[in-house]
Structures are given as C-alpha cells and as structure tokens.
Design a protein around this nucleic acid. Structure first.
Lengths: 130, 130
DNA sequence: ATAAAAATAGTAATAATTACTGTTTTATAT
DNA sequence: ATATAAAACAGTAATTATTACTATTTTTAT
C-alpha cells in the first residue's frame, strides 16, 4: 500500500474532531485542503482505514454511516432527533465482554454498543417529539 | 391505523423465524402468501412496526438492515463472512445499562449491542478469511 | 350498501455507496 | 536524476437499498 496525502488528510481530520462525521461531512472538510478530491476517494479510503483497523465505522441505522478515529473501547450515544453521535464512557465490564468467549458461536472480533435517544439540545429545542 | 393482511403476514413471519431477515428476504417469503405484495409495502410496514415498537431493526453496517420480532432484551452476533445475524444471550447487566442514567447526555430509549466476528460455519467452510 | 380514510401495487425517484477508466502520484531501481 | 511499475486519484457512470408518488383497492364505520 502506498502513501497518499488524501488518505492522510482524511485520517488527520478524523483524529482532530470529536464529532463522528459521515463520509459527506469528511468530504466537505478535506475539500478545503484538497479541492479536487472526489467523494469516491473519501469512501475508498474510509473502508480501507476501517479494514486496517485504524478507524471505526458506526452504523446508526439512519442511512448514513459515521466514522471515528478513536478505536479505544468506548460506546456511543445517538440522538434520533439531530442524528448526532456522541462519545459515551461505559463501565469497562461492558466492553470486556469481548474477551469472554460467548457460547462458541464463532470468533468475536468486535462489539459495538449504541445507545439511542433524544439528546439534551433536542429536548430543549423541540417540543413535539412524541 | 387500519388493519392490513400484508402487515399481519410480515409480522407473523418475523415472529415465526429465528433468523433475522432483511426486507428483501421478508418480501420473498410473504410473496408466497401474497404474490402481488410490493417491496414498498414491506418497507413501509417494517418502518411502521419499528415505530410502534413491535419489532426491532438491526443495523450491521453491511448495507442492509435486518429485522427481529423479538423485542426482549438480548444482543446479536453478526458474522462478517456470511452476513447472518444470530441471537446471543448476554449478561443482563449489559442491557440493564438502559435503566442507569448516563451522565445526563439525553434520554436513553434503547441500547443495542452487536458482536461481530466469523461464525463457526464460516470458519469451517472458508480457509482464507484473513 | 355507502362513503371516508387508510393501505396497496406498481412504478418512478432519491440517496448512499461502489465500480470503472484514463490520468497522476508514489515508490523503487537504475 | 530518470525511468518504470504499482498504487491512488478524479471524474463519472452504475448499483443498491430505500423512499416517494399515484391511481386503485381494502378496510372501517355509518
């Protein structure tokens, strides 16, 4: 695999932010440094970095995936209202399930724990959520 | 909301299976009873049932969502090789995090825990996974 | 049985993502 | 430094999952 400044820039951005941007958001950001970068390049490098284990993909189920350069054991909170993803400290025991063999169903390579709800901001801003 | 046999059939199928079928799979199954059902109807009813809390959507991040009529607290195991989703019994404490307020980030309506790896079958069938 | 509301089938449209192709970068060896 | 092969890119076209639209059919209540 060869070096590429585009990939470097994508990784750098992901490491610099505490947001959990989507491919589109990453694209728009990296475009400031590399105006000619194409969305395909962003997607290709994101999957590449995920495969290398350098970043994590977060699937919330709302259509677009989010990405996170923090690969340490932590969970996420997803607001079903503003669709933002936030970091969440979780009791270590939860993530440590990884090391516990689970009924021999297969190998366990990762565990993802996602909390969903309505975040503070959205509760304040919005009145009728349901 | 009115009754509909198509929706009933979708729910019945979901309740009868231990697999965690995708919309496409559900469509092909329900089609045996309702040959004229359209894929749009399947999707519409699935989102409806999810909104009503009668079924759960499972997003594995592989492009297509899976559905589960078992709304009780349990986790899933996803095989990144054959893309199947299996039920997993998890220590209750994990799911009970729901009831613990979490740093006041917002309301917590649900938590989903997903384990990913390569299932037994795929380990046996396949040699070169990586 | 009738009429209004809701749901459907079928099709068209959208959105996220992937594949393709000819050109540019990167790494390596002269 | 130059030449060369491999990898990555930009740009665009194609795919795939999902949603929206519309005219028709079902359901429910009168």
């Amino acid at each position: 695999m060869n070096y590429s400044r585009q990939r470097e820039s994508i990784k750098e951005y992901l490491m610099s932010t505490r947001e959990h941007p989507t491919a589109e958001v990453i694209y728009n950001h990296v475009r400031e440094s590399y105006p000619k970068i194409s969305l395909g390049t962003v997607y290709r490098n994101l999957t590449l970095l995920v495969d290398l284990g350098e970043i994590k993909k977060i699937s919330t189920g709302d259509g677009t995936d989010h990405f996170d350069a923090d690969t340490s054991a932590h969970s996420h909170y997803y607001c079903r209202c503003c669709h933002s993803v936030m970091d969440l400290e979780v009791t270590p025991s939860v993530e440590q399930i990884l090391s516990a063999s689970s009924a021999g169903i297969g190998t366990i390579e990762s565990a993802s724990l996602l909390f969903t709800g309505v975040c503070k901001n959205c509760v304040l801003d919005n009145d009728n959520l349901d």
